[in-house]
Design a protein around this nucleic acid. Structure first.
Lengths: 106, 106
DNA sequence: TGTTATATATCGTATCACGAGGTATTGTTG
DNA sequence: CAACAATACCTCGTGATACGATATATAACA
């Protein structure tokens, strides 16, 4: 997928990945993989950004001797998803504009 | 609309705006306005980029004493639109991922 | 004269995905 | 044990890019 297109989808995808259940970095990447791929450096950058924007909270937990940082979505994060849904109407309008067989003079 | 989301749509929107008929900067902005808004500085940056990528060609013409640069889409530009259509399938998949498991109606 | 519309262009800034690289532990295999 | 993969986190530099601010110039109009 076009990298610029990804930019507008990644944040909201990460939020969706932790929406139903708290999750951690490594797992988020795996869960998102069928839909959209991203590198670790990208994901951790996004998580930091979303935390700074209060769209998720984090708590560290130990699991099998390894450290895990569990992320939980906040109300602001859920609102971000709602905003994406609102944007979706515009995206559909743009899609129709781009895909319509332009011939008539409008 | 979210600015990051715009990033992935603007290029292809500009191409769509000149697809059916050659057009120029000022008119492109107006034609796109119902679907997506962009500033002049953004548009001219995009036109330069698309020209450098051979997705459009340009020819200058005078109109009522004022200079106009008419842009015409190339085969590469049309291919770019086709690539967007291909990306669309992934976008839909992501949309479903983001909006699913919301038991609440909306 | 002054203002708005038309029409193009450049520059600096902020944002952001990603590759490259780093740290550390657990599990597995020869 | 040694070697390596998998798990799990993090930082830094770079390139891409939307946009506000700014500049230039003509036409239309009050």
């Amino acid at each position: 997928m076009d990298i610029q297109l990804k930019r507008g989808l990644l944040d909201v995808c990460v939020l969706a990945a932790i929406r139903s259940e708290d999750s951690y970095g490594y797992k988020i990447i795996k869960d998102m993989k069928p839909y959209i791929e991203l590198s670790e450096s990208t994901l951790y950058t996004i998580l930091k950004r979303l935390e700074a924007a209060n769209m998720l909270t984090v708590q560290t937990a130990e699991h099998g001797g390894r450290l895990r940082k569990y992320y939980r979505i906040t109300r602001a994060g859920e609102k971000r998803i709602e905003e994406f849904k609102a944007d979706w109407k515009e995206i559909l309008s743009i899609y129709r504009f781009v895909t319509k067989e332009g011939n008539d003079n409008d």
